[in-house]
């Protein structure tokens, strides 16, 4: 564990150096991802000019949920972006061997190769929106709640990672699973708004099957005093652990399949 942390620190330092070399490009990426998120907020703003509330949720509350959604998403985006490349081309081009040739965990090896700083666009906008809406809503948080907030954010990121890992691992069998991953990743759009606006089958899917609901709306509603501690916070935590176990099992099986078939 200590070795992995020290390794990751080395990678981080290296990528930061590269980042400093290409400052302008980093800024561009950051602005890009930031603008996308801001256009979503502008959209909500235009809508709330027409209606007093959305299904009982005020503009500020919706902004809180929307902003909350960006943070786990950005965190996962920052750390595990290479999973997209796995789904798209690593197996197709026969480049997976290298991850099996070093005495470190192959998943760590794969993921540590890319740190996607563009994700700060999502992270910064998300954090700004959460803080802005909290001030507007006059939400005060205790120290314990800050800890719970961090717990749910990390859990949410783990859920994102697990879903990506699961569908990216399918590439061990079908070579290219990029579009399948993209399709399932698209489901995360549902979690940006209150789940109550959706029909029952969709709610079921994004709560129990592809659990994006736990990456934003469910934990966020706890902090808005609209949900209880157990389902919202511990439910999120449990969903994260469970999804990671399932995804990691599939990943391990994928490697096994790779070991028996080669490239």
């Amino acid at each position: 564990m200590k070795r992995y942390l020290s390794l990751y620190k080395t990678f981080l330092a290296q990528y930061l150096k590269i980042l400093m070399e290409y400052r302008i490009d980093f800024l561009i990426g950051l602005i890009g991802f930031g603008i996308i998120q801001l256009s979503g907020i502008a959209f909500l703003y235009l809508i709330f000019a027409e209606i007093p509330n959305l299904n009982g949720w005020s503009f500020e509350q919706i902004v809180f949920i929307y902003g909350f959604a960006q943070i786990p998403r950005g965190l996962d985006h920052l750390i595990t972006d290479n999973l997209w490349i796995l789904s798209k081309s690593i197996i197709v081009k026969g480049q997976f061997d290298r991850y099996l040739l070093r005495p470190i965990n192959p998943l760590f090896h794969l993921v540590s190769e890319v740190i996607q700083f563009d994700a700060f666009g999502e992270l910064l906008v998300g954090i700004a929106l959460v803080i802005w809406s909290m001030i507007k809503l006059k939400i005060t948080v205790s120290f314990l709640q800050i800890l719970l907030f961090i717990l749910t954010i990390i859990s949410g990121a783990v859920i994102y990672t697990s879903i990506k890992l699961l569908f990216a691992s399918l590439s061990f069998w079908i070579k290219n699973s990029h579009e399948i991953l993209w399709m399932n990743y698209s489901l995360s759009d549902f979690s940006k708004y209150p789940l109550s606006i959706y029909s029952k089958p969709i709610r079921t899917i994004i709560t129990y099957i592809i659990p994006f609901g736990f990456t934003a709306f469910i934990p966020a509603s706890y902090f808005l005093n609209k949900g209880n501690l157990y389902t919202c916070v511990f439910g999120t935590f449990a969903a994260a652990i469970l999804s990671f176990i399932i995804a990691y099992t599939i990943w391990l099986n994928g490697i096994k399949a790779y070991e028996s078939s080669g490239s």
Partner: peptide
């Protein structure tokens, strides 16, 4: 070199 970021801005 970061055309990816630029196109993302354009897309947004």
């Amino acid at each position: 070199i970061n055309i990816w970021g630029l196109t993302y801005i354009k897309f947004a």
